[in-house]
Computed example of a mutant assay.
Amino acid sequence: MQSAADGVEEHLREAGDRVTPAEQKLVRELAEQLRGLPPLPLAFIHGDAWDRNLLWSKDLGQAGWVDFERARFATAVQDFVLMACTTWADRPDLRAACLQGYGRDLTPGEQHALKCLAALHAVSCLVWGPTLDDPHVTACGRHTLNRLVEGVFA
């Protein structure tokens, strides 16, 4: 969490005018809040939980992850950031289903960390989307920042 918070200024600088002054202030505040969080549950995480890495088996009637090159031991909540910014963004039913399958809801500390990490992820998307000419990544960053500013990120 500390290293994520440490990178906020570089990401904001790289994002430039794609992030408004008000958004920059919010992102800085959320990054700073990461530093004060209590210890969070640890797990072996996938590390790249984009929907493109989740495959559905019709035969088994279940989903499975692929592409484990970023897998590592870390705070469990980190694996939910990408889903919270994409798949779950406007689908609380999918969030609930995912967490039911996970076997537990997020702790209050994890829920707050998810919001803070989503802000950092949004800025990262606004850096990498244009750099890679990937409108999907750019849109993810913009949508996430908009939700955070509006106070509807959950």
Rank of each mutant, 00 (worst) to 15 (best):
F68W: 14
Q78S: 07
S124D: 07
H46I: 01
R95K: 15
A22E: 15
E69H: 12
P21F: 03
G103I: 10
L60Q: 14
A119E: 09
G141I: 10
L55V: 14
A119V: 05
W128N: 12
D134V: 01
A5I: 13
G151R: 13
R72G: 02
P130T: 03
A43K: 11
H136F: 09
L54Y: 10
G16F: 05
W56M: 02
D67S: 07
S124R: 14
E29Y: 02
K115I: 04
E23G: 02
F73V: 15
T138A: 15
E69G: 03
F68H: 09
G64A: 13
L37S: 12
P21L: 02
P39E: 14
F44Y: 12
F80H: 08
E69W: 01
R52M: 13
V127L: 09
D105R: 13
L106E: 06
R91T: 07
L94T: 02
Q78L: 09
L12Y: 09
C125E: 01
A22T: 08
L42C: 00
V81G: 00
I45L: 02
L82C: 02
A119H: 06
R91C: 02
V149D: 04
V77C: 09
G61L: 01
L55A: 07
L60P: 00
L26V: 03
L145Q: 08
D90W: 06
A22W: 01
A43R: 11
A96F: 01
L60H: 12
D48E: 11
L145I: 11
R147N: 04
L117I: 03
L120F: 03
W128Y: 13
N146V: 08
V8I: 15
F44P: 00
A15F: 11
R13F: 11
L55I: 12
G101C: 08
P92N: 09
F153P: 03
T107N: 01
A22C: 00
L34K: 10
K25L: 08
G129N: 04
N146M: 08
D79L: 06
A63E: 03
R104I: 06
P92Q: 03
V149Q: 15
A122V: 10
P39D: 13
C116P: 07
F68D: 04
A154W: 08
V27T: 07
V81Y: 01
